[in-house]
Design a protein around this nucleic acid. Sequence first.
DNA 1: TTTATTTACGAAGCCGTTTTCGTAAAAATG
DNA 2: CATTTTTACGAAAACGGCTTCGTAAATAAA
Lengths: 307, 307
Amino acid sequence: MIKQKKILEAAARFNYTLNPYAISLRRKASKTIAVILPEVADSFFSLTINGIQFVAERKGYHVLIYLSHDKFLNEKSIVGECGSGRVEGVLISVTSETTLPDHIINLQAENIPIVFFDREFEGLPVAKVLTNDFESGYLAASHIIMNGCTNPVFLSISSSLSICNKRAEGFKEALREKKIITSNEPVIICGGTNVKVYSQIKNLLTGKNRPNGIVASVERLAIIVYLVSHEIGIAIPNELKVVEFSTMETAPILNPPLTTITQPAFEIGKTAAELLFKGIEKKAYDLAGEMVVLPSVLIKRTSSSAS
Amino acid sequence: MIKQKKILEAAARFNYTLNPYAISLRRKASKTIAVILPEVADSFFSLTINGIQFVAERKGYHVLIYLSHDKFLNEKSIVGECGSGRVEGVLISVTSETTLPDHIINLQAENIPIVFFDREFEGLPVAKVLTNDFESGYLAASHIIMNGCTNPVFLSISSSLSICNKRAEGFKEALREKKIITSNEPVIICGGTNVKVYSQIKNLLTGKNRPNGIVASVERLAIIVYLVSHEIGIAIPNELKVVEFSTMETAPILNPPLTTITQPAFEIGKTAAELLFKGIEKKAYDLAGEMVVLPSVLIKRTSSSAS
DNA sequence: TTTATTTACGAAGCCGTTTTCGTAAAAATG
DNA sequence: CATTTTTACGAAAACGGCTTCGTAAATAAA
């Protein structure tokens, strides 16, 4: 330990750094995790990345970010890339198209820890960090019903996405409980591009069975609902009450201020990462059974107030 | 090529994949780039990430994302991590505290390609992809002055950040040209946390030399300006005209709709990444002189309209 | 058929570090 | 002073692939 010290000093002087890949190869540890998510230009996901980075930095880990663009095939090939020791753990929010779990199972077979955050694939022995989707859907519906909404609708983006389904279930439960009969199918799937969704929502709001309340399940939908309402001159909240699952910072300064079910996005990311590191650090620790539910909060603003 | 084929088939059957770090070590190529930026929970930066990912995917490269949280020391240590072959190229948007370029120079000395996007460090022989900051600042100021603003102010976040300074210079140039004398220092630095900036802006808007026009240089500031205005009851645009450098999707549905200087965020990321790959692929190609300027556009909305 | 050319592939070295091993030197013990 | 224990460190193997290199086999040309 005498010569070594000198060498290290000299190394520092020349600001020489070890080759990370030689280390990864020898140690079989890459000090890297992967985050796979549908998109990043979304306030919810960007906040979860913040939470993940917060933990990863502290642990001295590097973070690879992959975007699935909400396409299953992308997700599948990305998950494939995460094997063979490239990363020590994977945080994933699945696409709205993901109905087969094989890629996840294969990755787990390689013994690499996985944690779902927000969007899970149900029925798999994988750790997950979620929010209270059912209750939130229930709460959103109850809230607008209590404020006078008689004909609400729930906007989903996929019939296979766990969060949307749970939120929709909660929504429907509230309708049953309040004995509300809607003139439309109460849950509408708004798939496809923004342009498509735009015309779909425009049709909905100009049709004869026009709803007078909307609960939108993801951020993207809310913006479109507002744009359409502004365009065709629907008065929110008088003609249409709107509640939105969203973490947008601009919610309070929208016209009108938007009532949101705000998910604890940063905490979801942070908690998911912490869970992942438990799995990475203790070989014995079994992530499979872990599930953390972080509650969302209803923030009442003008868009849903009583007429 | 007979036996090899069979082996590859067998490998595929067991879905065996090569160890990426062994390959990186031997080939001295990691197929990985790094993106360093102040924050990700910001629509501009998240869109640039989209643009970068778009190119990286196509090239089969992996993307490491690092957040500097707008702190110089973080940036410095992150840049340090990028040496020694960990990544083949670095895309960076510097912090508002970055006044020393040594870390960048050291990285360049290791011969790894670097491209600045949006926030550059001026005076370095490093490739850069920017927007037309000076012209945009000029345009924003001219626009509100023409609409009747007599006492505008420019909100910056740092006296050392190139984009803010150029935007501010353009702003001041317009003031000179229109012979506008402001009652305050025309450029105000809004540093620190959101809470601090909030009270600073509140003081500004309740003080006796209250401006009747604001050009905000980054997204974060605009939201705060709106929040303060709503709180203290300042009427936009009648009492205060607002123009904002922003890519927020919600700009048209704010109260009132927000006039923006919208940067081509996705294209900036995409172009920066393409430039980086030119540097990565052709050893001969010299990035040093490269500079691409992608123009922003002024999108006029209610927040700046004539009183 | 013989010679030249191409193709296939096993063997060995190499990438840059960690880890193990063995020995030499130093320190501690009897 | 001799012996045991500790410490230091050089040498070599290993991590898991890629990359020569050389030779054997197959093919083409003469």
